[in-house]
Amino acid sequence: MSKLPLSFYTRPDSVTIARELLGKHFYSSFDGVLTGGIIVETEAYSGENDAACHAHLGRRTKRTQIMYEPGGVSYVYLIYGIYSLFNIVTNAEGTADAVLIRAIEPLEGLPEMQQRRGLSNIETRLTAGPGLVTQAMGISTLHNGTSLVGNEIWVEDKGVLIQDEDIIAGPRVGVAYAGADALLPWRFSVRGSKWVSKAKPKY
């Protein structure tokens, strides 16, 4: 096992971290059931100067408080009252940066992921979207604040290197309210992967 250390997450540039998470293996293990796959799509957020970030301009709420912890813990929040979205808190304590995991190529625990998603076949609806990833992997808001160097949720480096020419950078999804910041090319995906979410950049 080659879990990413805390030092990977506590670096100051969430954009770099978001790019480097492509190709890493993302896992969950609950009640002895292991699920996971290769990260193929991410989004970066920066609390200090990013209007799309929940903690923009130092905003602190019950929900965003976890974002001010040192990097290497999870920030999981609910949208539409249905989907839990899994983010990795990055940077140092007091700086609310994060990376959203948007999609994975599923490799481990496929039957369990299919059951959680209610799918009879392995298809892109299994994990090609941030709310689908968490549902397939059994992650919910109960896992907000989970350490990524523990034994429930973690990321491993298995030597998969995504070349720069195979990484697509584009605007993030669903953040039109952020004005000019909505256009920042902070969503990263693996070129040609069928597991990238439906909000695919054109190429």
Rank of each mutant, 00 (worst) to 15 (best):
M67E: 11
K62S: 13
I66T: 15
I66G: 05
S46H: 15
M67A: 05
D50G: 05
L57E: 12
S46I: 13
T42N: 05
T61N: 09
Y45F: 01
A51F: 06
P70K: 03
G71W: 03
A55M: 06
A52L: 04
D50A: 06
T61V: 10
C53F: 09
R60F: 06
A51G: 11
Y45R: 00
A51T: 10
V40N: 03
Y68V: 03
E43D: 01
L57K: 15
E43I: 04
G58R: 13
D50M: 08
V73I: 14
L57W: 09
N49E: 15
E41W: 02
P70G: 07
A44W: 05
T42K: 03
G47V: 07
Q65F: 11
V73K: 07
M67Q: 12
E41K: 00
R63F: 08
E48C: 12
D50Y: 08
T42P: 01
V40Q: 00
H56G: 01
A55T: 06
A51D: 09
M67N: 10
V73W: 04
A55W: 09
E69V: 08
Y68F: 13
H54K: 06
R60L: 11
H54D: 03
Y68S: 05
G47P: 02
T64P: 04
A44Q: 02
E48W: 12
P70Q: 03
G58M: 09
Y45P: 01
G58I: 07
E41Y: 05
R63M: 12
L57G: 11
S46Y: 12
S46A: 13
C53S: 15
T42G: 03
E43V: 03
G47D: 09
C53L: 09
A55D: 08
V40M: 07
V40I: 05
A52H: 08
R59W: 08
V40E: 00
T42R: 01
V73S: 14
C53I: 11
E48N: 14
A55Q: 06
L57S: 13
M67K: 09
R63N: 07
R63S: 04
E69S: 14
R59Y: 09
V73T: 14
H54M: 11
T64S: 09
R59G: 06
E48Q: 15
R63C: 10
T61L: 11
A55V: 02
G58P: 13
T64R: 09
G58N: 14
S46E: 14
A55Y: 11
E69Y: 11
E43L: 00
E41H: 05
Y68C: 03
T61G: 12
E48G: 14
A44V: 07
V40H: 01
K62V: 13
E43K: 01
C53H: 01
H54C: 06
T64E: 05
T42I: 00
Q65T: 14
R63I: 10
R59S: 13
C53P: 04
E48R: 15
H56D: 08
T64N: 06
G58A: 13
H56V: 03
R60E: 10
N49S: 14
G71M: 01
N49D: 15
Y45E: 00
C53Y: 04
Q65R: 15
C53M: 04
M67V: 12
M67Y: 07
